[in-house]
Computed example of a mutant assay.
Amino acid sequence: MFTGLIQALGKIKLLAESQILVSLESSSNSQIILKDLAIGDSVAVDGVCLTVIDILAQGFVAIVSPETLKRSTLGQLSDRYVNLETSLRAGSKLGGHFVTGHIDGVGRLQSSVETINAWEMKFIAPHTTDEKWERQIAPYIVPKGSIAVNGISLTVADCDVDGNWFQVAVIPHSFNETNLSHLKVGSLVNIEADILGKYVAKFLRHGSNNYSVLPPALAANSTVNNLKDITPEFLTENGFI
């Protein structure tokens, strides 16, 4: 689990079909990422959760599956900058939002405009010939909702009704300290929708006629027939509030 707050930039190189090398060019970046890193740890590389299998003086080697290369930009980013974040530790501050490192799809930058206080960036949501895959992300893109672009926790400022595109306002610090500053119009990006939104959507989609999505204590209560029966009063009576 990650927060979407980028700690450092690195460069990647495909070593083999199932391995990538992440190089850290500066000593400060090396200290941030490698300080407590151990073999078997998870690191988000441009938003993709990867497992470390070797640690070097100025970087690390991670394993990557063919499915990950297919569903993300990692197979196309050799010798380009990537955002890095080590996994969230118990007791750490959660400054962004819950990011799993499981990419929903690859989108692309449509425009990037510098304003007085921010960079307004517009992205096209994942487009693919697999319609089922494309529909998996659009329903979770909502105004003021959270979204991760290349592993960066961002807030959706605007989007169309279907979620085919969305816009974010990126503060100068986030823009300059991540690889957003290296993107050009048409650049591909990894996109992960908010995990909380996915669970809520599933609950609302199936909850009215499917007890399996309810907590056991609620599912076992004979008075719960559908979501409308779950009121604040009901939750209080059953010890949930």
Rank of each mutant, 00 (worst) to 15 (best):
D130I: 07
S23F: 03
K144S: 13
L37Q: 03
T115M: 10
A16E: 08
S208G: 04
I20R: 02
L94F: 02
N179S: 10
R80C: 09
N209M: 11
I147Q: 00
V189W: 08
S87Y: 05
V149T: 09
I55T: 06
Q58H: 13
T68R: 08
A201S: 10
L14V: 08
S212I: 12
Q7M: 13
V161K: 13
V149K: 01
N209S: 15
S112M: 12
T231S: 15
V189P: 07
N164G: 13
D160W: 09
S87R: 09
T100R: 01
S23D: 12
S112V: 08
I195Y: 09
T51G: 06
L34K: 02
G91N: 12
I20M: 03
Q76P: 00
L37N: 05
V45K: 00
N164T: 14
L154W: 03
V156I: 15
L88D: 00
R71D: 04
S78W: 00
S111C: 07
K70W: 08
L227P: 05
Q19D: 10
F2W: 06
P215N: 12
S23M: 05
E120I: 14
L9T: 09
K70T: 12
L15S: 04
N190G: 08
T223W: 04
Y211F: 13
M121K: 02
P172I: 11
V22A: 04
E25I: 11
Y81Q: 09
I147G: 02
E67I: 07
V106M: 11
M1K: 07
S87M: 07
F98Q: 08
G96S: 10
I33R: 01
L94H: 02
G151A: 12
E131H: 10
E17A: 14
F240A: 13
T155V: 08
Y199G: 04
L227F: 11
Y140W: 11
D41I: 06
W133T: 13
L50P: 01
V106T: 10
V52F: 02
Q7G: 04
W119N: 04
N179H: 12
G40W: 04
N225H: 15
S212G: 05
E177G: 00
I241M: 05
